[in-house]
C-alpha cells in the first residue's frame, strides 16, 4: 500500500501544508519574541487577507499575482494599526492584559466580518489554469501547490536576509534577545515592534490567500485553527526564533499529513487532536523547542 509514489505524494502534501504553517508561525514567533504576547488576532489577519484576496479574485483582477500582493501589503498595514491601537497602550503592562486584549481584538475582527459579510462561507475559486494538475513520475501536484511552496520559500528567504543584514533586522534580533538591553543601546523599540507586526501580518495574509485557494473557501472564523496550530509549530521549533518557526511549521505539516496518510482511515478524524497532543508532549519533554535557547524557567 505504501508505494514509493504514495510516500512521495505524502511528502509533497506535507511540504505544502508545512509552508503555510511556517508563514503563519513566523509572525507569531516574532511578536512573541519581542512582547511575550501570544497574538490570538494573528489568525484573523490571515482571514482578512483571504477575504481581500477573494474580493480581488472575483473582480477578475489581473495579473493574478497582484491579488496576492495587494492583500499582503494592506494586511501589513492592518497589523500596524492593530498594534498601534490595541497593544501599544499596554506596553509595560502585565503580559496577561495584552493576551486578553488580543482575544478581544480577534473577536472584534471576526464579528465585524460576521456583521458585514455574514458568517456564510464563500467559494474562493481561482482561474482554471491555477488548479491544473501536473504529474511527475506518478506524483501529482497543482500549479497552486508549486506556487505555495515557491512563494513561501522566497518570502522566508527574503525575511531571513532582511533580519540578518539590515539595521532594523539586527535591532529586531537584539530586542528579541533582551528588550531592555536593546532599549539601553538606543534601539527604537516601537519602530522594531511596528516592523515586526507589518512583516508578520504580511506573511499571514499570504498564508490566508494560499489557504483559501487550497481549500476553495473563506469564512470569518477560518483563521482560528490555523493560527492556533501555527503557534504549536512555533513552540515545536522554539518560540522567539524565526528559523525555529520555519522548522516547526514544516515538521508540524509533515506530522499532520503523515498522521492522516499512514494510519488507518479511522484515525484521520482525530487529526486536530493529534496536533495538540503533540504540543503537550513537546512541552513535557522539550519546552524550549528544537532551536530555542534553553532559557525557559521551570518550577
Amino acid at each position: 500500500m505504501f508505494t514509493p509514489t504514495y510516500v512521495a505524494q505524502q511528502i509533497i502534501n506535507g511540504v505544502n501544508l508545512g509552508s503555510m504553517y511556517a508563514l503563519i508561525a513566523i509572525g507569531l514567533t516574532m511578536v512573541y519574541g519581542l512582547l511575550r504576547l501570544i497574538n490570538f488576532a494573528h489568525g484573523d489577519l490571515l482571514m482578512l487577507g483571504a477575504y481581500l484576496g477573494l474580493l480581488l479574485v472575483s473582480a477578475a483582477f489581473t495579473p493574478l499575482i497582484l491579488t496576492l500582493f495587494i492583500p499582503m501589503l494592506a494586511i501589513g498595514f492592518v497589523g500596524i494599526l492593530v498594534e498601534r491601537l490595541a497593544y501599544r497602550p499596554l506596553r509595560g503592562a502585565p503580559e496577561v492584559t495584552m493576551l486578553i486584549t488580543s482575544l478581544a481584538v480577534s473577536s472584534i475582527i471576526e464579528n465585524s466580518m460576521v456583521m458585514t459579510v455574514t458568517a456564510q462561507p464563500r467559494a474562493f475559486n481561482l482561474p482554471a489554469g491555477v488548479n491544473q494538475l501536473h504529474t511527475v513520475a506518478g506524483v501529482s501536484f497543482s500549479t497552486l501547490d508549486a506556487l505555495t511552496v515557491g512563494l513561501s520559500v522566497a518570502l522566508m528567504a527574503a525575511l531571513t536576509l532582511y533580519v540578518r543584514n539590515t539595521r532594523t533586522g539586527i535591532a529586531m534580533r537584539a530586542a528579541a534577545e533582551n528588550l531592555r538591553a536593546a532599549r539601553l543601546m538606543g534601539i527604537d523599540i516601537n519602530r522594531v515592534v511596528m516592523v515586526a507586526f507589518f512583516l508578520g501580518s504580511m506573511l499571514a495574509a499570504a498564508a490566508g490567500w494560499l489557504w483559501a485557494a487550497k481549500y476553495s473557501t473563506v469564512e470569518p472564523f477560518m483563521g482560528f485553527l490555523p493560527g492556533l496550530k501555527a503557534f504549536v509549530a512555533a513552540v515545536i521549533g522554539g518560540i522567539g526564533v524565526i528559523p525555529g518557526a520555519v522548522l516547526g511549521g514544516y515538521l508540524l505539516g509533515f506530522a499532520e499529513i503523515f498522521f492522516v496518510g499512514f494510519l488507518p482511515p479511522a484515525y484521520s478524524g482525530y487529526r486536530d487532536a493529534f496536533v495538540f497532543a503533540l504540543l503537550l508532549l513537546i512541552l513535557l519533554i522539550r519546552p524550549n523547542g528544537i532551536l530555542g535557547a534553553s532559557t525557559e524557567e521551570r518550577a
Partner: peptide
C-alpha cells in the same frame, strides 16, 4: 502537569488545544 511547570502563558494555548481535542473526540 506538563504545562504548569513552565513560565509564560503556554496554558492559554494548551487549554485552547484541549478544547479542540474535546470537540474532535466528541465528533468522532
Amino acid at each position: 502537569l506538563p504545562v504548569l511547570r513552565l513560565r509564560g502563558h503556554y496554558l492559554a494555548v494548551a487549554t485552547l488545544g484541549l478544547m479542540v481535542i474535546v470537540r474532535v473526540v466528541a465528533n468522532n
